[in-house]
């Protein structure tokens, strides 16, 4: 039997992993937001064929398990294109695709929730499509959009744990490494659960509070 050390002595490993997890999920959320906004808007206002294409994009990336996306982005792209993607880069690609599919749904729902009359009013004021979208419809949609986007962030943060399968030492992989060294599986994984729970619970509670505030502001 191996000697059992103390899991708590390895707190810098967990901290380092946690920083990487947060970094990765924030980058993916930002990139996913841009891509998801484009896809969502194209799905809502684009011409028929574009709409169909974007629906296909959303449906596809919503239906592929994150495990596959990480695998495909890391091993698949590396072997198929010869690009030497680092685990971090591959993880960003995988999670951006996933996040953008979720966010495009959120965007579509948010923009469709804006009353039809708002478009008519903007038109009556002589605003063209983009001007109306930017100054009239957009600001109203953004309020509806923020709470579910935070929900997407929680999902992305949780799914970032799959980056551990491509060798990125984020929080989950940090835990696996400590487990290999110390051997105390139960403590390690309960600690991981606790850390993920604390972050995600804090974020989703914040989202709820924000949602309540927006509701009153109307």
């Amino acid at each position: 039997m191996f000697t059992r050390g103390n899991v708590w002595e390895y707190w810098p490993v967990f901290l380092h992993g946690l920083v990487l997890t947060v970094e990765l999920s924030l980058i993916a959320l930002a990139a996913g937001f841009v891509l998801g906004m484009a896809v969502g808007l194209a799905r809502t206002y684009g011409p028929g064929p574009v709409r169909l294409l974007c629906t296909g994009f959303t449906e596809t990336f919503r239906s592929i398990p994150p495990l596959l996306l990480f695998f495909g982005a890391f091993y698949g792209l590396t072997y198929a294109t010869g690009l030497a993607l680092s685990p971090f880069q591959a993880s960003v690609i995988a999670m951006t695709l996933e996040a953008s599919a979720f966010i495009s749904e959120v965007v579509r729902a948010a923009f469709r929730s804006v009353d039809r009359g708002q478009w008519n009013a903007a038109q009556a004021l002589g605003l063209r499509f983009w001007a109306a979208l930017w100054t009239v419809i957009g600001p109203q949609a953004i309020r509806v959009l923020i709470p579910p986007t935070i929900g997407v962030y929680v999902a992305v943060l949780k799914d970032s744990s799959f980056a551990s399968i491509v060798g990125l030492v984020e929080l989950t992989r940090a835990g696996l490494l400590v487990r290999e060294t110390v051997g105390d599986s139960l403590t390690v994984f309960l600690l991981l659960s606790g850390i993920y729970f604390a972050i995600n619970f804090a974020i989703s509670s914040g989202a709820l509070a924000l949602e309540a505030r927006f509701r009153f502001a109307h």
Partner: peptide, 19 residues
């Protein structure tokens, strides 16, 4: 809702085995 599925799996598979 707030714990990643993968971590939950590790708790059940590796953690409980140890217990």
């Amino acid at each position: 809702r707030n714990i990643p599925l993968l971590v939950l799996l590790y708790v059940y598979y590796f953690g409980l085995a140890e217990a």
